[in-house]
Design a protein around this nucleic acid. Structure first.
Lengths: 189, 189
DNA sequence: CTATAATCGGGACCATCGTCCCGGATGGAG
DNA sequence: CTCCATCCGGGACGATGGTCCCGATTATAG
């Protein structure tokens, strides 16, 4: 009933798709979401049209870049949920998300709510990083490890603070210092 | 030696300058730094050229909008520095900056490091909000009210978290909750 | 009142960027 | 080897937005 045999793509198409994906991953990571599509095409060594054919919009390209990384993160969240105390699991996953975003400006901007909506990419991927963090937060609060009253929106805001450009990348430990402040603040009084 | 008598500006020029300044203040506050200059001109009821003549660049317009508000804030910081304990003064000024930014998206974006550099506006104004916050931080740390190791950059990052769009504006107390988390985390252990 | 210089309005101009299109090239089935 | 569906390159197009220019207007000195 699909009506589509879905013939296998040509070899050069697959190759170029991979080239674009790698170039985009690196460009989004280092330059952030504002990197022009033309620039990604240039870095990949292909034409602009090639990028647009494989990924109709810039957002779909970003979603594709995040897809595999997101799967790893949700798996990590699930592992922490079963092996750690609720509080420890939440704080560990929170810190891991920050470190992930530190190495990937595009992801950081997306987590911080600037640019694309990370939720839409998550839904496409079937793996919802935000959902896992939300669940871990709830569990940690039920266990009394995180103060009551804190909402998921509060946590996302604090996360964006930890990911802010202000945190000096040359200052080893700066990121961990900020994470420590937020986590200590989140603990129940 | 100036060679310029600097004749007083015409009445309509002064009037239009004030109109632009008021429209810009409101537009930057509600829409953020991304509001188009054309839109500010429209709201002020003047032509685009009129805006550009009084304020050659968008950034200079923003600096002018902030000028008076910044003076109020630095004065407030100086008052707190003399009437309060070092720790209390720092935390109070920190919270006031957040609340100020809550009512002014443009200021929030600027404090968060997105868009224009607030320092340049400060230098022009001769009143350095960042400098006061830095000084209060130092004093609070010397008094043992804020944990050691925290840098000014760390504080700016945490501030941007409190100002994040994620904080639900319809949730009364959400902002204060986030501020409380950060301030508790900053206190010496 | 008149002359003149300051000011006004808003459209022109330029740069940026996402998306789309089309003439040419090519992979791969037969 | 041949042929054509698929894919490629990169320029065109449209939208957005900051800055600048020029003909028309108006405040104000004398």
């Amino acid at each position: 009933m699909t009506g589509k045999p879905a013939r296998a793509p040509r070899a050069d198409a697959r190759r170029n798709r991979a080239l674009v994906l790698r170039a985009a991953a690196e460009a989004f990571a280092t330059e952030g979401l504002s990197v022009p599509v033309h620039e990604i095409a240039r870095r990949a060594g292909v034409g602009t049209g090639t990028v647009g054919r494989h990924f109709p919009t810039k957002e779909s390209l970003f979603a594709a870049v995040l897809l595999d990384r997101m799967a790893v993160l949700t798996a990590r969240a699930d592992a922490l949920a079963t092996t750690e105390e609720p509080g420890a699991a939440f704080f560990a996953f929170f810190a891991e998300l920050i470190h992930e975003g530190t190495d990937h400006r595009g992801l950081a901007e997306s987590l911080a709510g600037a640019g694309f909506d990370i939720e839409s990419a998550a839904v496409e991927a079937g793996s919802d990083v935000s959902g896992r963090l939300h669940a871990l937060l709830k569990a940690a609060q039920d266990a009394g490890a995180v103060r009551d009253g804190i909402t998921f929106a509060d946590v996302k805001a604090l996360m964006s603070g930890c990911l802010a450009r202000e945190v000096d990348p040359t200052d080893t430990g700066a990121r961990d210092r900020v994470i420590a402040v937020v986590c200590d603040g989140l603990r129940a009084t």
